[in-house]
Computed example of a mutant assay.
Amino acid sequence: MIAVLKQKIRPQQLEVFLNELTATGAIVYPVQWGEQSLVVTSPLSSAAVGVLDRSPLVESTIDTGSVFQLTSRCFQRKNTVIHVGDARIGDGSVAIIAGPCAVESREQVAAIAELLHGQGIRLFRGGLFKPRTSPYSFQGLGFAGLDILRELKARHRFVIVTEALSERCLKELIGTADIIQIGSRNMQNFSLLKEAGGAGIPVLLKRGLAATMDEFLLAAEYLMAHGNSRVILCERGIRTSCCHTRNTLDLSAIPYLKEQSHLPVIVDPSHGTGRSELVLPMARAAVAAGADGLLIEVHPSPADALSDGHQSLTPDLFRRLVEEVDRVAVAVGTRLTRNSPPF
């Protein structure tokens, strides 16, 4: 249950109200939602309902009828649009976030930046911290790569998307990153979700390796319950018995999530398939299914990539993807977001 509070409530009044709810056995989460003050309560006993009904502080209540609250379409009917600089995600167009799996060098980043700039792509994704299965695989440049992203941002005015693996990592990235990615392996890292919820920066949340939709949306709920209304959901494939692809890309997640939630939904066909030759057709399919955006890995020379070269597109394949996705977007009544260089 979500209680929408009236304006101009004194701190002492709020404290008394929250104590009354807590005394009924309810778990209480005060949330500031833009200019609106909310209280999310769970579980809701008849005694708690009574407190809500008779309190003069409550403007209205919303029963979402589900285990998730702030992420629910019942809470907010209108689609959430994420504004980051001049970029928009969730506004009805299709955004492309692209870049290397891992930032390797200034030369590599410069080559990809030129490619993206030429295609009118504003959102640059590059990993500094890589959670690899093997401890002997390339783990990313770490904090040493921050200067590369800072220089890229200053020169080309890209919106920077990069992954945080820990609370310390998150704090160090703020100021350089415009969107923080929380990866599949960290989808249920609850301490990181809480920290990111209060960080004041948009979060791109990837679905866990075998997460259900409820688990995925409840992970987003952690972010929102801690004050972050700017959350992007990313379907990136799940682990199944199939072995012909790295993961099984669940495109049914797109319409399902958009029915259940107001949050924008993007798709990562690079990790979803793990095979560069499958990225283009699955990107087209994702747009046709209603995705708000795509997360695409690209590398100047995939064969030489230090991480995930097998699923990274060459520059020529990336240009082809942009053109094909643009045509599909128009066919289904939307458009691809592209900025005319210079940005």
Rank of each mutant, 00 (worst) to 15 (best):
Q260K: 15
P202C: 03
L321F: 10
L217K: 05
M282R: 03
F158Q: 11
V39R: 10
Q119D: 08
L257G: 02
A113N: 02
Q7W: 07
A305C: 06
L44P: 00
Y256V: 15
L280S: 04
I232E: 05
R73E: 03
E15H: 04
T61M: 09
L21C: 08
V287A: 08
K258R: 12
A111I: 06
F75N: 10
L52W: 11
L38A: 10
R239M: 03
I82R: 04
C234W: 03
H299Y: 10
L336T: 04
A164L: 05
P202S: 05
Q119G: 02
E221N: 05
D292E: 11
E35R: 15
A305G: 06
A95E: 12
R77C: 07
R239D: 00
V49S: 13
V298M: 01
E297C: 10
I182M: 07
M224A: 14
H271C: 08
N247G: 07
C74G: 04
P43C: 06
E195L: 14
G333T: 09
E277H: 13
A23L: 09
V332H: 00
S312H: 02
I174Q: 12
A98L: 12
A26R: 03
D53N: 14
F75P: 08
M187G: 08
D178P: 12
V31F: 04
N79I: 01
L173Q: 13
L263N: 03
N247H: 14
P315V: 08
D268S: 10
Q32N: 12
K6E: 13
L205N: 02
I160T: 03
C169I: 00
G99H: 11
W33L: 02
P255K: 05
P302W: 06
I160E: 07
A111F: 06
E259Y: 15
G118P: 12
T64W: 00
L165M: 15
H83N: 14
R327S: 13
E259N: 13
V40S: 06
Q7T: 14
A210M: 11
S252H: 12
T273L: 04
P100W: 03
G140M: 09
I121S: 05
G290R: 04
I89A: 03
T133K: 05
R338Q: 13
K206W: 10
A95N: 00
P11H: 09
L115Q: 03
A48P: 08
A48K: 11
R122C: 06
A154E: 14
